[in-house]
Write a protein that binds this DNA or RNA. Structure first.
Lengths: 206, 206
DNA sequence: ATGCTCCTCCATCATTTGATGGAAAGCCCC
DNA sequence: GGGGCTTTCCATCAAATGATGGAGGAGCAT
């Protein structure tokens, strides 16, 4: 029970965890400035000061959300790695894309938060700490693109980023893209998988 | 001199155009809620009420910015199309990636705004009007992926989106990715081009 | 010069939003 | 039951933010 975040995760029914869960979604949808503490409190069905009691400043809650989300993503990717380990390369890519995509479609706020964090600045200087996604090196190693997890070539890191972001884009942009192309959810999901395989597999299939 | 936006573009030294230019950058950096009318006015060196005099509500200014940015992007893509027209396919992709990437690196607020618009909601309901990027069909046609501009298959649209967004991601995420990988700007730009070609060319090079 | 239009700024307002203090309510241990 | 601890909510504050009214000024035609 070291960090407050761990505490919140241990007991998912605790008020602190409930707030975190709502905050993930609201911050993901509206971004840091677009989300207000009142919105989060209201959706959680509590008073705003209860939120402040548990989490302190808005930026602290946001930090908690970001760390929580990145942790979840890292764990999921490790799980995917275990599933595909040892299989032939072509299968690995296909399965990895399927599993990752499905997971993110179920937890779209992850993609939202990751992308908003990459692309949007914050007026509040304090929220800077560039959180180097350590899962990049995991993926690079797992795909056989580097021998040493500690020293991933820069070019490879960029390839991984391109890959991950392509996925996030389709998850996070679902609302926009789907209504643009007038698709049902189911069709969208399956076409997104298809498109990702179309784009990503040939590139890495040396 | 029909729309106010056209007026602003006709005379780029006009106050209205100056405000628009600053607003593009500020909205792009901080998003709709992260940007304040005061920030924009201050950066433009004018009083806040001058801004309101020319543009009315904040959301009107934002609408103007979005339209301006999408127009610029469409024009640039048409220009690129003219350059690559008639060349062999492999060359076309390479040149298109180079030109588009360079242009966006010079005008990063375009990528910022496009992505923020795709991925971020706004508390203000009024800003909804989903602006179907008509350049998608232009690109599809230009790449020979469809015969009829009016009827682009959905799968093709998704492929184009994946392609465009990959580019935008690297432009918009420059601050984050570059400091994550500790690169100078020049190296980043050239590696991004390389990575985009690595990912995109094999997929479409049937 | 007068009057007119257009533009800019200062002062100000109303609302939103981040944040807190203190009272009440629950809860546990004795 | 009572003391003490935690948790929740109501009332409220201060600052930030979107927005406006009106005074003044520049330019220009008459």
């Amino acid at each position: 029970m070291a960090t407050p975040l761990e505490k919140a995760r241990k007991d998912p029914d605790s008020m602190k965890a409930r707030i975190l869960k709502v905050a993930r979604r609201v911050f993901g949808e509206y971004g840091y400035h677009g989300a207000t503490t009142r919105m989060i409190a209201e959706e959680a069905g509590i008073d705003i000061s209860t939120l402040y009691y548990h989490w302190g400043e808005k930026s602290d809650l946001y930090q908690g959300v970001v760390q929580d989300v990145f942790d979840d993503l890292r764990h999921k990717l490790q799980e995917v790695e275990r599933v595909i380990h040892g299989r032939p390369f072509a299968d690995r890519m296909e399965i990895a894309i399927d599993l990752t995509t499905e997971y993110l479609f179920e937890n779209p706020e992850i993609s939202n938060l990751v992308l908003l964090r990459y692309f949007g600045k914050t007026r509040d200087e304090s929220i800077l700490d560039i959180y180097v996604p350590d899962f990049i090196s995991d993926i690079a190693y797992s795909m056989g693109l580097c021998k040493n997890k500690k020293a991933v070539p820069k070019g490879v890191s960029l390839q991984i980023l391109a890959m991950m972001n392509s996925i996030h884009n389709f998850i996070s942009g679902e609302g926009f893209f789907r209504s643009m192309l007038t698709m049902e959810r189911e069709e969208y999901v399956s076409r997104v998988k298809e498109t990702l395989k179309f784009i990503l597999i040939p590139a890495f299939n040396t």
